[in-house]
Nucleic acid binder design. Structure first.
Length: 724
RNA sequence: GCACGCAUAGCUCAGCGGUAGAGCGCUUCGUUCACAUCGAAGAAGUCUCAGGUUCGAAUCCUGAUGCGUGCACCA
């Protein structure tokens, strides 16, 4: 053995061996009948993994732990097409080449992105392998695989038939820069400074940040309690506008806050979510003045064709000329919805889209966690889960993108009738024989990934693993993904005729890890340029050290900052293990002792042989301690306490086993008699137990040591987890 | 605005009702005999602040301050 552990000589060789021997495939061992399964949260196929993905190491730890316990264990890998994210990235690439998506036909663009994604996917999968993840690659899935999309179509159709899906013209969050609508979750809110204009509306003055939408006003609203405006309620007032005189109705609605501005609000149902609701209550017409291109339409008269921002400026100038602006508060700060990707303001626009009715689905998802059929770890995240589901809005699943699963809905050009299919094409209208045209939109990515556990298991003939044991992911996508998987998972199983709620849920446990920030505690992001590729660190410190550093010293669900000193310490730990092995190898060779593989029980029996002889004190103690650490680590792993399991192993290995026991053992070994041989048996056997306990955390170095020291045909990855 | 989380040794973080912990850093000493990516010894903290509950609080409760995050319709 080399004096220093060199991960580069080991990792690739060992990973290949595991794969060649088929150890990643589910298999019953040691007579156990239990099953254990995890579906890997499918990383986006559009880019290399970032460092946060390395947190999936907790899944590998669980998977290896259960595999060693003999459970039939499956860890299924996959990749997500990440609709909008990917198209966004790809469009950026096109832009750099001086092109745009409009230079290509739909099919061409799709094909180009497809090739791009396949290339990236390979790199991403290689990263997962380098981290030592024991994934069953034969079952790998992609969200755009044909058999997966078939299931997605089916669910869509079922929702439609069950009237949980409807198409309606409603206000949607639309980004006019990226040309697509978004769900509520995808809109982020930012503080922006925008002037607040006090504009004259006939006898009234009202405050607005969006004077350019006034062409779409269909009412003015005041609070029903507001004494100042009582005389106008229900009446029409005559107003002077930049486009001439007009009349407008005054309505009373409790949504108006009398203390804001002047207490009177212009109602623009087509471009504001609140106003839209007021309009519903008061039966007001909806007049759109902004188009999907972000420009004013003909309703805006001479301002037609101007972008919103330009129109605002022009309208205000015109109004000022006509004396219609009373004052302007230039320092007004408010929060507005912006596109999470390009950060431009979200434009609420009226648009026909497919919506999923969430309340019935959400209710079941809430109940199942309340009843404990799904457990969330750490428990504190339950609140976030409930908060989201209890206030959920209907889910807009239409996206105006090319990259994704095209919605299998067809509209008759003649009679306007919609037909939803399970993916097959429709050319003729069933009602009037008119020509059918397919919806050009694709599904929100989360609509397909929300069906991931069922879809992946079904299409790999692995439904025996449904529901999976654990869903492990970052808490940041609890609402985006986990909650939706619960809702859709239950729904799908209901449709499959499964009655037992315990069988409907997609997983039994949700385990949430925190985020990994950069060494300065800042969130890693491409725009900040502080993203770290996990492979850089794997090269530098070894996969085992990287893995151990991620779980050591951070409580489950807490964020952590990448720490180079910690990585170094863990690299030293791998080397410590290596040298402990070297010591044992050397001692064995010196005395022609063979390493033994006694169980804890066998060591206890051996230990009795020496009664309370003083020279055997440390051996006796080690037998006792190795039993304690075994049950402690087992207990901690069963409750997902990776941090303490790792800390215990680290402390015990270094300070109990190496510093004390190995030092003590030298005395006995040097006796070179029967007691020395027995000590060597305990030394090598208890070290092997330690190797097994550490293996889920540091699979490479432990497997390599096992190979060198204990040899034979066996492999640590499928060895039996220690117990009494 | 509402909610949640975090504030513990110089730094990064565990602990979460019973005499303050780890890693890194720091100080002193030690290399033929597994490992200097090492060993031995050591210094270092009114556990953010103010009240309260308790025989006893870093740990539970209330409030304050600071930082972070999530949610919300302020025109």
């Amino acid at each position: 053995m080399d004096k220093i552990y060199n991960n580069k000589n080991v990792e690739e060789k060992i990973y290949k061996k595991w794969g060649d021997k088929g150890f990643f495939k589910p298999e019953e061992r040691f007579g156990s009948k239990k099953k254990f399964s995890i579906i890997l949260p499918p990383p986006n196929a559009n880019a290399p993994l970032h460092f946060g993905h390395a947190m999936y190491v907790t899944e590998d730890i669980l998977v290896r732990f259960h595999r060693m316990k003999g459970h039939k264990t499956l860890w299924l890998p996959g990749a997500d097409h990440a609709g909008f994210e990917t198209q966004f990235v790809y469009e950026k690439k096109l832009q750099e080449a001086g092109e745009s998506r409009f230079d290509y036909k739909r099919e061409e663009l799709y094909k180009m992105i497809w090739d791009y994604v396949q290339e990236n996917r390979k790199g991403m999968e290689n990263q997962l392998k380098r981290l030592g993840f024991s994934l069953d690659w034969e079952r790998r899935k992609f969200t755009l695989d044909e058999d997966i999309t078939k299931i997605v179509y089916q669910t869509f159709k079922n929702l439609y038939d069950d009237r949980l899906l409807y198409r309606q013209k409603r206000l949607v969050n639309y980004c006019t820069f990226d040309g697509t609508s978004f769900s509520d979750l995808e809109v982020i809110y930012e503080e922006r400074k925008n002037p607040l204009f006090y504009i004259k509306y006939g006898p009234l003055v009202l405050a607005t940040t969006r004077p350019e939408t006034k062409f779409g006003d269909t009412a003015v609203a005041v609070n029903p309690e507001d004494k100042r405006y009582q005389k106008y309620i229900g009446k029409e007032i005559e107003i002077e506008t930049v486009l001439g005189k007009a009349k407008i109705k005054v309505v009373a609605d409790k949504m108006v806050d009398p203390s804001f501005g002047t207490g009177a609000v212009k109602i623009t149902p087509a471009h504001d979510f609140d106003d839209f609701e007021v309009a519903q209550r008061h039966n007001l017409p909806m007049v759109a003045v902004i188009g999907f291109d972000g420009k004013m339409n003909k309703k805006a008269g001479k301002f037609e064709g101007l972008y919103v921002r330009q129109a605002r400026k022009a309208v205000v100038e015109e109004m000022q000329k006509k004396g219609l602006i009373e004052k302007i508060d230039e320092n007004y700060v408010h929060r507005i919805g912006v596109c999470y990707k390009c950060k431009n303001p979200i434009e609420p626009l009226p648009m026909e889209q497919w919506f999923v009715k969430m309340q019935p689905l959400a209710k079941k998802a809430i109940d199942t966690v309340k009843k404990g059929d799904i457990k969330i770890h750490p428990k504190s995240f339950e609140k976030l889960y409930f908060q989201f589901l209890e206030n959920i809005h209907d889910w807009n699943i239409s996206r105006q993108l090319v990259w994704g699963i095209r919605i299998p809905a067809f509209k008759c050009e003649k009679c306007g009738e919609w037909e939803v299919t399970e993916g097959e094409l429709r050319e003729k209208c069933g009602k009037c024989s008119g020509k059918m045209v397919q919806d050009t939109d694709t599904f929100d990515t989360w609509f397909s990934s929300g069906q991931w556990p069922y879809a992946t298991l079904k299409t790999t003939d692995s439904l025996e693993f449904y529901p999976t044991s654990v869903m492990e992911t970052g808490y940041d996508i609890l609402r985006w993904w986990v909650a939706r998987m619960v809702m859709l998972g239950i729904y799908i199983q209901e449709k499959e005729g499964i009655k037992d709620v315990k069988q409907q849920v997609p997983f039994e446990n949700v385990v949430l890890h925190g985020l990994v920030n950069d060494p300065l505690g800042k969130k890693m992001s491409k725009s900040k340029g502080n993203v770290i590729n996990p492979l850089e660190l794997v090269d530098q410190y070894g996969a085992d050290a990287v893995r151990f550093a991620l779980v050591y010293g951070t409580a489950l669900g807490n964020d952590q900052s990448l720490s180079y000193p910690k990585l170094q310490a863990m690299r030293n730990f791998t080397n410590k293990l290596w040298n402990m092995a070297r010591f044992i190898e050397f001692q064995g060779n010196e005395r022609t002792f063979k390493t033994s593989e006694l169980s804890i029980k066998e060591m206890q029996i051996l230990s009795k042989k020496h009664g309370d002889e003083d020279i055997w004190k440390s051996d006796r103690e080690m037998v006792q301690k190795i039993e304690e650490i075994t049950s402690e680590v087992t207990r901690l792993l069963e409750k997902y306490d990776f941090n303490h399991a790792a800390q215990n192993l680290y402390d015990f290995t270094w300070h109990e086993f190496a510093d004390i026991y190995i030092e003590e053992s030298k005395r006995t070994l040097n006796n070179n008699d029967a007691s020395g041989k027995d000590t060597f048996e305990v030394l090598s056997s208890s070290f092997l137990i330690l190797l097994k306990l550490i293996h889920p955390f540091m699979p490479f170095v432990t497997e390599e040591i096992y190979d060198v020291l204990y040899g034979g045909e066996e492999d640590l990855i499928v060895s039996k987890w220690p117990s009494l």
